[in-house]
Measured scan of single mutants.
Amino acid sequence: NKFNKEMRNAYWEILLLPNLNEQQKRAFIRSLYDDPSQSANLLAEAKKLNDAQA
């Protein structure tokens, strides 16, 4: 399933972002589970926040 693969990839990438705190990571991951079809958008948002907090 395409969404499962995308979601899994986004999950691990979000977990490994160094500048997000645990609460932020949990919020993004919760959103991933709520709507896996938004994986790419959520990952992009997480990366943007990660860069902003660098």
Score class of each variant (00 low, 15 high):
N1G: 11
N1S: 03
K2T: 14
K2Q: 15
K2E: 15
K2S: 14
F3L: 12
F3Y: 08
N4W: 15
N4R: 03
K5F: 01
K5S: 01
K5I: 02
K5R: 03
K5V: 02
K5P: 05
K5Q: 07
K5D: 04
M7K: 01
M7A: 14
M7F: 15
M7P: 01
R8Q: 14
R8V: 04
R8F: 12
R8I: 09
N9W: 13
N9I: 15
N9R: 15
N9A: 15
N9Y: 15
A10M: 03
A10F: 04
A10T: 10
A10L: 05
Y11S: 04
Y11T: 06
Y11A: 08
Y11I: 13
W12V: 04
W12R: 14
W12N: 14
E13R: 15
E13N: 15
E13L: 15
E13T: 15
E13S: 15
E13Y: 15
E13M: 15
I14A: 01
I14V: 06
I14K: 00
I14G: 01
I14Q: 00
I14Y: 00
L15R: 14
L15N: 07
L15A: 04
L16A: 13
L16G: 14
L16N: 14
L16V: 06
L17G: 01
L17S: 09
L17N: 02
L17I: 02
L17K: 04
L17M: 08
L17Y: 06
L17E: 01
P18I: 07
P18M: 08
N19T: 07
N19F: 09
N19S: 07
N19A: 06
L20T: 01
L20S: 00
L20I: 08
L20V: 10
L20E: 00
N21P: 05
N21K: 07
E22P: 13
E22H: 12
E22L: 08
Q23G: 09
Q24P: 00
K25Q: 04
K25N: 01
K25T: 07
R26Q: 05
R26L: 05
R26E: 01
A27K: 09
A27R: 10
A27Q: 09
A27H: 07
A27W: 13
F28D: 00
F28R: 01
F28T: 02
F28G: 00
I29Y: 09
I29G: 03
I29A: 05
I29Q: 03
R30H: 04
R30E: 02
S31P: 03
S31G: 08
S31H: 09
S31R: 14
S31F: 10
S31K: 11
L32P: 00
Y33K: 03
Y33H: 04
Y33N: 02
Y33F: 13
Y33E: 02
D34W: 10
D34I: 15
D34Q: 13
D34M: 14
D34K: 14
D34L: 13
D34A: 13
D35S: 12
D35E: 07
P36T: 06
P36A: 07
P36L: 03
P36K: 05
S37D: 06
S37Q: 11
Q38M: 05
Q38A: 10
Q38F: 10
Q38Y: 08
Q38R: 11
S39P: 10
S39M: 14
A40D: 05
A40Y: 14
A40Q: 09
A40F: 14
N41E: 05
N41W: 14
N41L: 13
N41R: 11
L42M: 08
L42G: 02
L42N: 04
L42W: 13
L42E: 02
L43F: 04
A44P: 02
A44W: 14
A44T: 12
E45M: 15
E45H: 13
A46R: 00
A46D: 00
A46E: 00
A46K: 00
A46I: 02
K47R: 11
K47W: 09
K47T: 03
K47D: 02
K47V: 10
K48V: 12
K48F: 12
K48D: 07
L49E: 06
L49V: 07
L49Q: 05
L49P: 00
L49S: 06
L49M: 10
N50F: 01
N50I: 02
N50L: 01
D51T: 12
D51K: 09
A52S: 11
A52G: 09
A52K: 11
Q53N: 08
Q53A: 08
Q53L: 13
Q53Y: 11
A54Q: 10
